[in-house]
C-alpha cells in the first residue's frame, strides 16, 4: 500500500466535510479555527480575574482598576491552531484480521485520514508508532507536505512485540508540554486500569484525548466455530478450545472489559470511539465527527 492509498477518497470526502474540530480549547501556534486556551489579547473578551503576582502587567485592566481600585486582568478567548498527536499501536495483536478488516491496516487508514483532515485544517499533527517502545516518531507539523512523511511512516509499520500503552501515555504526557489532542489508535488489549491511568495523565496535562479502540468483529462477537488452537499474537501461549463452548464466558468478559474501558474513559473525559474493522471506516469516522460536532 502506498502512502496515498491510506487516504481513501470516500473516507476523506465525508470526514472533510465534517472537519475535525477540537471540542476543547487547544493550544495553537497560529490563529485557526480553534479556541485557544490562552486568554489574553484576542478578539473575544471572556472575563476579569484578580491580578496575581507573576501575571503579565500588560494584561492589567486599568479601567477596571480605576473603578474598583483593584488590579484585575482581562481575559480573552483566542482562536488558535492545535497540535494533534497520533499514537498508533503497532503491536502484534494489531495484526489480526485479513484484508480491509486487518486491525493495523484499519488503524493506519484511520491515522492517515485523521492526519489529512488535521493538516487540511492547517493544524499540526505528529505521529508516534509504538508497541512496547516507540518505534517511529514524527514531530508535529502543520505543513501539508508533512502528510507524505506520515503516510510513508505508516506504510513502513511492521507489527511486532507486545502492547504497552500505559507507559507510552505517561511518556507522551511528560514530553508534550503544549496542550493538544492526543489520538490513541489501539486495540488496547491490556489491563484497563493502567491504561486509564495513562489516559488520565494526559488529561491531567490538559490534552484532549481521543481513544480509537480498534477491534475486529471476531474479537467482540466471537463467532468462531470448530476446534481451534488459539496462538497468541503477543507471546508464545496457545489455547485449544471449541469457541462455541466458551462463547458466553468470553463475551461476558469482553463486554465487561469494554464497559470498564468506556466508563473509565468517560469518567476521565476521554473520547472513547470503538471502531470495528468490519465497518466501513468512512461511516464510522463520519459518525464520530458528527457526534463530536453536536456535542462541541
Amino acid at each position: 500500500m502506498t502512502g496515498s492509498s491510506y487516504l481513501k477518497p470516500e473516507v476523506l470526502a465525508r470526514a472533510e466535510a465534517l472537519g475535525l474540530k477540537a471540542r476543547r480549547i487547544v493550544e495553537g501556534l497560529r490563529v485557526g479555527d480553534h479556541k485557544s486556551p490562552y486568554k489574553g489579547f484576542s478578539v473575544e473578551f471572556v472575563q476579569h480575574r484578580e491580578y496575581v503576582p507573576g501575571d503579565d502587567i500588560r494584561h492589567i485592566d486599568w479601567k477596571s482598576y480605576g473603578r474598583s481600585d483593584r488590579y484585575t486582568i482581562k481575559q480573552y478567548e483566542q482562536e488558535t491552531n492545535f497540535t494533534a498527536h497520533l499514537l498508533v499501536d503497532a503491536s502484534n495483536s494489531m495484526r489480526y484480521g485479513s484484508g480491509p478488516s486487518n486491525k493495523l491496516e484499519y488503524a493506519k487508514l484511520l491515522a492517515a485520514s485523521l492526519a489529512y483532515l488535521i493538516l487540511r485544517q492547517r493544524d499540526a499533527v505528529g505521529l508516534r508508532v509504538f508497541n512496547t517502545e516507540v518505534v517511529a516518531e514524527l514531530p508535529p507539523s502543520s505543513q501539508l507536505g508533512h502528510l507524505n512523511s506520515l503516510t510513508r511512516t505508516l506504510e513502513e509499520i511492521q507489527p511486532q512485540e507486545r502492547t504497552a500503552i500505559a507507559p507510552l501515555l505517561d511518556r507522551v504526557a511528560d514530553q508534550v508540554r503544549r496542550r493538544g489532542i492526543v489520538i490513541l489508535i489501539s486495540d488496547c488489549f491490556e489491563e484497563v486500569e493502567p491504561l486509564l491511568t495513562g489516559l488520565r495523565h494526559l488529561r491531567f496535562r490538559g490534552h484532549e484525548v481521543i481513544l480509537f479502540h480498534i477491534l475486529h468483529h471476531d474479537e467482540v462477537e466471537f463467532p468462531l466455530d470448530g476446534n481451534i488452537r488459539f496462538v497468541a499474537l503477543e507471546g508464545m501461549e496457545e489455547l485449544l478450545t471449541q469457541p462455541h463452548l466458551i462463547r458466553p464466558a468470553y463475551l461476558r468478559l469482553v463486554q465487561q472489559y469494554l464497559r470498564d474501558l468506556r466508563k473509565g474513559c468517560e469518567a476521565s473525559g476521554v473520547d472513547y470511539v470503538q471502531m470495528l474493522t468490519n465497518r466501513a471506516l468512512g461511516n464510522a469516522l463520519a459518525e464520530y465527527l458528527a457526534r463530536r460536532l453536536q456535542t462541541s
Binding site: N92, S93, M94, R95, K103, E219, L224, F230, V231
Partner: peptide, 8 residues
C-alpha cells in the same frame, strides 16, 4: 486448526 489471536 491454528488461529493467531490477540485477546488471549
Amino acid at each position: 486448526k491454528p488461529l493467531p489471536w490477540g485477546p488471549m
